[in-house]
Simulated assay, not measured.
Amino acid sequence: MLVRDAMSTMVLTIGPAHTLRQAARLMSERRVGAAVVLDPDTYGLGILTERDILNSLGLGQNPDLETAGTHTTTDVVFATPAWSLEDAADAMSHGGFRHLIVMDGNDPTGIVSVRDIIRCWAPVRRASTAATATMAG
């Protein structure tokens, strides 16, 4: 199974000047756990996750003053739609993160999360287990 089969094509894109409160509201409204942060001045892409917002709040920072740009991860590993889910899971495990921005050329076309991978793998695993049980019985 490939990343294109699992990824969410609902890509929330925000700017670095968005406050963390604005980012959290948009993420909540769209029911996503991460936003792509596009800096038009540098043409750079980064990612802001729910964990980044949680860490800021845990430090007692004001979500109305803190900006996405300050909390964005810019050292990002990008996936392509043609990656296998195993490759995506390996990248996430190795990097210690739960989301990958999926790029098709120079454009973000999706985000794949650990949840997306589990959603795709769980039915395959159940079917495999059921087939093994049937053959054993």
Rank of each mutant, 00 (worst) to 15 (best):
M1W: 11
M1N: 09
L2F: 02
L2T: 07
V3S: 04
R4E: 12
D5K: 01
D5T: 02
A6Y: 03
A6V: 04
T9P: 05
T9D: 15
T9C: 14
M10L: 14
V11Y: 02
V11S: 12
G15M: 01
A17Y: 08
H18K: 09
L20E: 01
Q22C: 08
Q22I: 07
A23D: 03
A24R: 02
M27I: 08
M27E: 10
S28Y: 09
E29S: 03
E29L: 01
A35Y: 06
V36C: 12
V37C: 11
L38V: 11
G46S: 11
I47D: 00
T49C: 03
E50I: 04
E50F: 06
I53F: 00
L54G: 02
N55G: 01
S56F: 12
L57A: 12
G58R: 05
G58A: 06
G60R: 02
G60A: 05
E66K: 09
T67W: 03
T67M: 14
A68K: 02
A68T: 08
T70R: 09
H71F: 13
T72R: 02
T72A: 08
V76E: 02
A79T: 10
T80L: 12
T80S: 14
P81T: 02
A82K: 05
W83F: 02
S84N: 09
S84L: 04
L85Q: 02
E86V: 05
A89M: 09
D90M: 12
D90H: 07
G95R: 05
F97V: 15
H99E: 08
I101C: 01
I101D: 00
V102Y: 05
N106C: 14
N106T: 13
D107H: 02
P108K: 15
T109E: 09
G110N: 07
G110H: 07
V112W: 00
V114M: 01
D116V: 09
D116C: 08
I117S: 01
R119E: 14
R119Y: 09
R119L: 12
C120E: 15
W121S: 06
P123L: 10
V124H: 11
A127R: 12
S128R: 12
A131F: 01
A133L: 15
T134E: 06
M135H: 14
M135P: 01
A136D: 04
G137R: 15
